[in-house]
Design a protein around this nucleic acid. Structure first.
Length: 279
DNA sequence: AATGACTCCTGTGCGC
DNA sequence: TGCGCACAGGAGTCAT
């Protein structure tokens, strides 16, 4: 599902295709995504030039020449289709049409995605962005910051890393992958992690996200890159979805029982019990 | 304050 | 073959 690397890839694809273009019209097939799309959305967006893009966590912000920003969240099944056909695809709820005739569709079968409109100057005060944790690939995300977020917390590290207030942009897949790389057991109480382990976690998070962005985002079945091609980073997942398969980090070790699965806060967790021990 | 359960939604894949 | 159902997950909201 779209996590930071996929959202970054989508944003870059949209940027390369739509930056400085004029939105001549917006077709709204339905207003009820996760929340209602503002009633005046079409009126406010039509005729405006796209002046810039920004990603914050899993949100995409599309800046317009009238100093408004479109807020776009892909939810779990959302994707952007460039040059979508004139006949709307199933679940293609919104279509942006540019002055030069390009069609940019927002397809979202499960409708967990959202579309909103806010003043560009108040992006960071927007209710869903205010209070969000640091961007994991920016310098502000340090082990000291993560250590402060963990301090005194008894909740498992997996759960706390999924919380967008701790660090923004991580989802179930990349949290599993980062914990595996760091050798941290997902059930470890956050507050019990040592500084050394936390700095290892910071490095693992950065590495896993950086590699995923380089690979062009992942696909998990229902994600399509703006260019229309599927991402392929899922082949590089080491533990996610690999229950029972040999752990990639302990080949041939007799003690390795393979990738294990457990449920935390209603979410699937995959890990190697041999490489990731509670300390 | 912190934590976990619940909720939205539909496509997929499994078992019978 | 076809049906039914559990499951997938982002994240806000509510209850504990």
């Amino acid at each position: 599902m779209p996590e930071l690397p996929e959202v970054e890839t989508v944003m870059r694809g949209m940027q390369s295709a739509l930056q400085d273009h004029v939105i001549s019209d917006v077709i709204l097939h339905r207003h009820d995504l996760r929340w209602q799309i503002p009633a005046d959305f079409r009126q406010c967006v039509s005729g405006q030039t796209i002046t810039g893009f920004r990603r914050r966590g899993k949100y995409i912000l599309i800046r317009l020449s009238n100093n408004l920003s479109i807020v776009l969240h892909l939810g779990m099944s959302g994707r952007i289709v460039l040059d979508s056909p004139a006949t709307p695809a199933p679940h293609e709820h919104v279509i942006f049409i540019t002055a030069d005739g390009r069609r940019c569709g927002f397809v979202d079968p499960r409708r967990f995605g959202m579309l909103d409109l806010i003043p560009t100057a108040q992006e960071d005060d927007y209710k869903f962005l205010a209070g969000m944790g640091p961007e994991p690939l920016e310098p502000a995300f340090t082990s000291a910051v993560l250590q402060a977020a963990f301090k005194g917390r008894k909740a498992p590290v997996k759960t706390v890393l999924l919380d967008q207030k701790t660090v923004s942009g991580l989802g179930n897949i990349y949290v599993c992958e980062a914990l595996f790389r760091a050798g941290t057991h997902p059930q470890t109480a956050s507050g019990s992690l040592k500084p050394r382990e936390i700095s290892g976690l910071v490095r693992a998070i950065r590495a896993v996200l950086t590699e995923a962005i380089a690979a062009g985002g992942s696909s998990l079945k229902d994600y399509v890159r703006p260019e229309g091609s599927l991402g392929y980073f899922q082949h590089a997942w080491r533990v996610y979805g690999k229950k029972g398969e040999p752990c990639p980090d302990c080949p041939g070790l007799p003690a390795c029982t393979g990738v294990a699965h457990l449920t935390q806060a209603g979410r699937s967790t995959f890990f190697c019990p041999l490489q990731q021990k509670i300390r």
